[in-house]
Write a protein that binds this DNA or RNA. Sequence first.
DNA 1: TATCTTGGTTTCCAAGAGGAACCAGCTTAC
DNA 2: GTAAGCTGGTTCCTCTTGGAAACCAAGATA
Lengths: 125, 125
Amino acid sequence: MLKPDNQEHTAACAHIGRMLARISDKWTLLVVQVLGRGPLRFNALRREVGEISQKVLASTLRELEENGFVSRTVTPVTPPQVEYALTDLGRDFLEPVRGLAEWVVANSARMDAARAAYARRRGHG
Amino acid sequence: MLKPDNQEHTAACAHIGRMLARISDKWTLLVVQVLGRGPLRFNALRREVGEISQKVLASTLRELEENGFVSRTVTPVTPPQVEYALTDLGRDFLEPVRGLAEWVVANSARMDAARAAYARRRGHG
DNA sequence: TATCTTGGTTTCCAAGAGGAACCAGCTTAC
DNA sequence: GTAAGCTGGTTCCTCTTGGAAACCAAGATA
């Protein structure tokens, strides 16, 4: 049994944890970031994202739709046309995501250096 | 074959993607966020993070160490004592991660509302 | 002697991710 | 007229990953 203070603290952290877990799987952040450049159709999005499989892109998009980050607009022409775009919530979310992406771009050299140093330590450790 | 412009563009995105993928698994961001409050030993960290298994926490920490975000300090006493702490790089990384966490805290109501709306649409759709 | 501690690793099983094939509904090519 | 191809998926199968639980060393404690 935890003290009330700790309980509150832990509950808040668990909440952050759940939300963070909901958005930080392998592809979600990347998809949000790509859609931040503009709406895209399924296969165009897939090409932009890179090596994602259809199945995983579909489920990632469904989850993003469920969380209210992206909208899915079907135009019943032939061939079918399904456009994915960020919602207001998704665009707001883009701000911290871009912060993350920019940090990654700015610091990838440091990350690579750290990996190299680790490999050296491990290599002749 | 892509045009040079696109190739450059795609290469940069792939790079962001790789880096983003490296840090955005289920637990990494959360562990970084928790360690941002101060160094912790393995089991203390595990209790703070919540429902993570030992195996996954161990591998998450190894990867964070590999990327240069956390340091691992072993004190050879008995029982063994292993302290994990953010490095300079990890502390720098904390800034965008906190941005994300704060956004999540500030907008969790909107996320929940979107989920509820989606469930309603699906419920009697 | 038996048990508890710490920080893991190993084992086993279920869940998830990925590749490939398939599908519908229409268009184009041969 | 029939075969192939486009779209946006779904289904099937496999392989990797995640999680629970057991095990481990090396001492402290009872």
